[in-house]
Simulated scan of single mutants.
Amino acid sequence: MSGRITFWPSGTTIEVKPGTPILSAARRAGVLIQTRCGGNAACFMCKVKIRPGSDLMPIADEEKRKLAGLEEEGYRLACQAKVRGVVQVDVPLDPLRAAVQKLLAKQAEEKDELW
């Protein structure tokens, strides 16, 4: 049996061995997930939202402690969450890209108001 992860919003899909951390799969697939600690569950930057119906290995106590209840809303740490089957992951935009997109949207809105 193999695992498969689809990363959203890009739609990039990759086949992986069960037990592969989401962060490792993302790196192999060329999907950027921010991290500062190198995958040691210390920085909390690799937090991703797991779509309902995804098949991950059970959450470990350390990750659960770090998430402090966010796992109940579907969040997991990409460095700790391990694939068991088919997984769908929503990857947040990195902060700089998100800020640029917000600024561009605001400028487009202002331009539309002028016309």
Score class of each variant (00 low, 15 high):
residue 12 T to C: 04
residue 12 T to L: 03
residue 12 T to I: 12
residue 12 T to A: 10
residue 13 T to I: 00
residue 13 T to V: 07
residue 16 V to K: 01
residue 16 V to N: 02
residue 18 P to S: 15
residue 19 G to M: 03
residue 19 G to F: 08
residue 19 G to A: 08
residue 19 G to C: 10
residue 20 T to A: 09
residue 20 T to L: 04
residue 20 T to K: 02
residue 23 L to P: 00
residue 23 L to W: 05
residue 26 A to T: 03
residue 27 R to T: 08
residue 27 R to N: 08
residue 29 A to Q: 05
residue 29 A to P: 02
residue 30 G to R: 05
residue 31 V to F: 01
residue 31 V to P: 01
residue 31 V to A: 07
residue 32 L to F: 14
residue 32 L to C: 04
residue 33 I to H: 03
residue 33 I to K: 04
residue 33 I to P: 00
residue 34 Q to E: 15
residue 36 R to H: 14
residue 37 C to A: 09
residue 37 C to Q: 09
residue 37 C to K: 06
residue 39 G to N: 08
residue 39 G to I: 03
residue 40 N to H: 14
residue 40 N to M: 11
residue 41 A to E: 08
residue 42 A to N: 12
residue 42 A to P: 01
residue 43 C to W: 05
residue 43 C to H: 07
residue 44 F to L: 15
residue 44 F to P: 00
residue 47 K to Q: 13
residue 47 K to P: 02
residue 49 K to L: 12
residue 50 I to T: 04
residue 50 I to H: 01
residue 51 R to N: 11
residue 51 R to T: 09
residue 52 P to L: 09
residue 52 P to C: 12
residue 52 P to G: 11
residue 53 G to Q: 10
residue 54 S to E: 06
residue 55 D to W: 02
residue 56 L to T: 06
residue 57 M to S: 09
residue 57 M to C: 08
residue 57 M to G: 05
residue 59 I to W: 12
residue 59 I to P: 09
residue 59 I to V: 15
residue 60 A to H: 11
residue 60 A to G: 13
residue 60 A to F: 07
residue 60 A to L: 13
residue 61 D to Q: 13
residue 62 E to C: 02
residue 63 E to K: 05
residue 63 E to T: 06
residue 64 K to C: 12
residue 65 R to E: 14
residue 65 R to T: 14
residue 66 K to M: 14
residue 66 K to I: 10
residue 67 L to E: 09
residue 67 L to T: 08
residue 67 L to N: 07
residue 69 G to P: 06
residue 69 G to Y: 11
residue 70 L to N: 13
residue 70 L to K: 14
residue 71 E to F: 11
residue 71 E to T: 04
residue 72 E to R: 15
residue 72 E to A: 15
residue 72 E to D: 14
residue 74 G to C: 09
residue 74 G to R: 10
residue 76 R to Y: 08
residue 77 L to N: 01
residue 77 L to E: 01
residue 78 A to D: 07
residue 78 A to S: 15
residue 78 A to H: 04
residue 79 C to H: 02
residue 79 C to P: 02
residue 79 C to A: 11
residue 79 C to S: 03
residue 79 C to K: 02
residue 80 Q to P: 02
residue 82 K to P: 00
residue 82 K to M: 12
residue 83 V to A: 09
residue 83 V to T: 07
residue 84 R to E: 15
residue 86 V to A: 14
residue 86 V to I: 12
residue 87 V to S: 00
residue 88 Q to W: 06
residue 88 Q to S: 12
residue 89 V to R: 02
residue 89 V to S: 01
residue 89 V to C: 04
residue 90 D to Q: 13
residue 90 D to S: 11
residue 90 D to Y: 05
residue 92 P to K: 00
residue 92 P to N: 00
residue 93 L to Y: 08
residue 94 D to V: 01
residue 94 D to A: 05
residue 95 P to Y: 08
residue 96 L to W: 13
residue 97 R to Y: 03
residue 98 A to M: 05
residue 98 A to D: 11
residue 99 A to N: 04
residue 99 A to L: 10
residue 100 V to M: 13
residue 100 V to D: 10
residue 100 V to R: 14
residue 101 Q to V: 00
residue 101 Q to H: 09
residue 101 Q to P: 01
residue 102 K to F: 10
residue 103 L to P: 00
residue 103 L to N: 13
residue 104 L to R: 14
residue 105 A to R: 13
residue 105 A to C: 07
residue 105 A to I: 00
residue 106 K to I: 03
residue 106 K to N: 07
residue 106 K to C: 01
residue 106 K to Y: 14
residue 106 K to M: 10
residue 107 Q to L: 15
